[in-house]
Nucleic acid binder design. Structure first.
Lengths: 221, 221, 221, 221
DNA sequence: TATGAATGAGTGTTCATTCAT
DNA sequence: TATGAATGAACACTCATTCAT
């Protein structure tokens, strides 16, 4: 029988991983939304529990009632946005009949899906990036570091390699190209926020054209 | 036609020209170096005056003797790195005989110069980006925000527009392309730091090829 | 001559006699048991309502439903253990035919009874001592302070004085001796808990011998 | 080159274990004194950094400037008192010409020394005991637990064993006796504080007589 | 020039307690 | 009876900044 002085469960009598009630889920969602807003407005360093609580119109304790930690709040925020994105990506992927598409079309679909989603939810994405760039553990290491990032490159590299084998793509380093694609995509959310009037459709087709040219084998178009 | 890499550096914002002694300047340089190291190791949030002082082997007060503020220290750090970069760029530009070159060659030179410099000084660059992404004034606004960033895009957009006029480049949005170039360049420093073994020469030529393809008019190669 | 072990227990401070149902009483008992366990495991400072509730497998509110206060919970815990001890002491006292015994035998019986009980219930006793040593009112004064402790010494002092009158005991200060006896007894619970393998029988007879020698008049043995 | 985000050194530029200045030492001493006072007045649970600071007439930050931690403050307090006690004990031991003394005389000297010191510094001792009884690490384990206590019993057990070999002491368990002696000694500080008028000389000779009787072989007096 | 000392605002976190359901 | 939700005071601790020396 062991006791720990750290980490609490507080209410939620039985240890059972707390089947969250509807209102509980709603509050968590609201707090995550507020966290996103604060992250966008004030950045990672300006995102404090008090400010999140204040924006939600509740006391500071409420935040820590629903999330054990500040870390848990931030990580839940990232996970939430991530999950929503995956959900969207799956549907969009299906709509694009992506399975049967050629590598260039897949790349197109990938960029389109990502940029569309960002254009529709720039704050969520910017907030997530803000956290992943800054959130560190007590040892000073980035929590969402390279180990977290690598799997993000995998699908892109897959597309590139397939395209090189099929003869659609020229010979380039798939990793460098994947990293470049992600950089361009990730920057988009901040540009959306900085210039709200930005024509995301035009921007997207520019980016699509950019990487289409960058990857295609000469004369295959 | 002349391209400038923008931003003059002005170390002496107040009129009183350069009262700093040599040792004074040395100390400031040392403290800026330590600031860079701490920024790279612990990120913006982990960069405190004590840690900078500790790293420099001096007391905390020393830092505030040479820099009125934490803000001033950070801003001086950014400016310093910026100045060094400008210095380098000027020399490199000259070596490339850049003034007489064609737009594609200019783009090549631009990328080469930037990536070479980053490969040689990844920590400085990463530290600067860390600050420019996170440093905010008391109102929560980014100090090195878009007003600071826009002039960075100018020379690139100049090259692109010239190339489109001269018929070397296809028709694309120079701003989108400039932003994309900068994103890819800026990300490079973090990759250098994350994977010290990275072959920067190979990486650079990949990026050069990427944007050469992305910009060229079809069949002009 | 009759000795009382002092302190009546009165579970119902308010006049309204025993409105508690059976299940109510059971819950209180269970919560008190959990309180004891937490006190032993984590000490007074680590004993929080949440942890007591968690241990009992109920929500935090339940504890405050059955005990108006944290203070009341702790005080009820002390009282409960105290009452159980009194109950035991009465029976044991009777078994020892204590009423007709000589002062040395009474002292022996007192020590034996106390140490036997502690050996059988070290956690309860340690928990009680933990509370009585630490529990303070809002002004910072110990709730179970000297006013609470003095009556504990009374029966021992009674035995000593009787023994001195009867010529069994040498001339010593009954209060100092009583305090010393209590210190040795009270420490026993913690030793039991710290060294579970401890031979309590041997320990007890050592303590009995110690105080027999310490009190006897020379040559009366 | 490693950075840690925990534990600070703040000022004190070079790592060198901070040769404490005179004023630094004075402040630390003062803060330790205040800690002792608060511990005695309000107990372990009531001893907060603010209250210590308040009593010292300084701001809360000062305490943490001189002691990295609350834990360090408490541990320094214990160590300080401990060191002073050792210092005193050495001198007193020498005065008693203890080296050539018989075991009963040694026991006498031991008790006399301890109780004299406590009578002269009851608050320090009570504070120390308060900490050692309550101070736990983050896992809930007592910091000054049995591992810390055992060496305290060693000298006493040594005296007892010597006395049993020399024929001065009867046959008893040296450990049980040592524990009993310590319990009686340790309780003394609280009694001094609870009853300031207490005649410590008389009390001491009572305790000395108690353990003299408790240990002596029959008829050797 | 540099240091040690001190301050005060702010941060994350804990916890007893209240209350509607 | 019991729970979940919320509050607010208190706590340990961090950090930029000030100031006398």
């Amino acid at each position: 029988m062991r006791y720990r002085l750290t980490m609490r469960s507080d209410n939620h009598p039985d240890g059972q991983a707390s089947v969250r009630t509807f209102t509980e889920e709603a509050r968590r969602g609201q707090l995550i939304d507020c966290t996103i807003e604060v992250l966008v407005a004030l950045g990672y360093g300006g995102t404090t529990l008090s400010r999140v609580a204040e924006r939600a119109g509740v006391s500071k304790g409420v935040v820590l009632y629903h999330f054990t930690n500040k870390a848990e709040l931030l990580e839940a925020t990232v996970r939430e946005v991530y999950d929503r994105g995956i959900e969207y990506a799956k549907r969009a992927w299906f709509d694009h009949h992506a399975e049967s598409a050629s590598p260039p079309d897949l790349l197109h679909a990938y960029l389109q899906t990502n940029l569309d989603y960002i254009a529709a939810h720039p704050a969520e994405i910017a907030a997530t990036i803000e956290v992943s760039r800054n959130h560190r553990d007590s040892a000073g290491a980035l929590v969402f570091g390279s180990a977290f990032e690598e799997p993000i490159y995998a699908p892109l590299e897959g597309i590139f390699r397939a395209g090189q084998e099929s003869g659609h793509f020229r010979d380039f380093d798939p990793h460098v190209m994947a990293v470049s694609v992600r950089r361009v995509i990730d920057g988009f959310s901040f540009q959306m926020l900085a210039a709200p009037g930005l024509d995301s459709r035009a921007y997207t087709s520019e980016v699509v054209a950019l990487f289409d040219r960058a990857t295609r084998k000469d004369g295959t178009r």
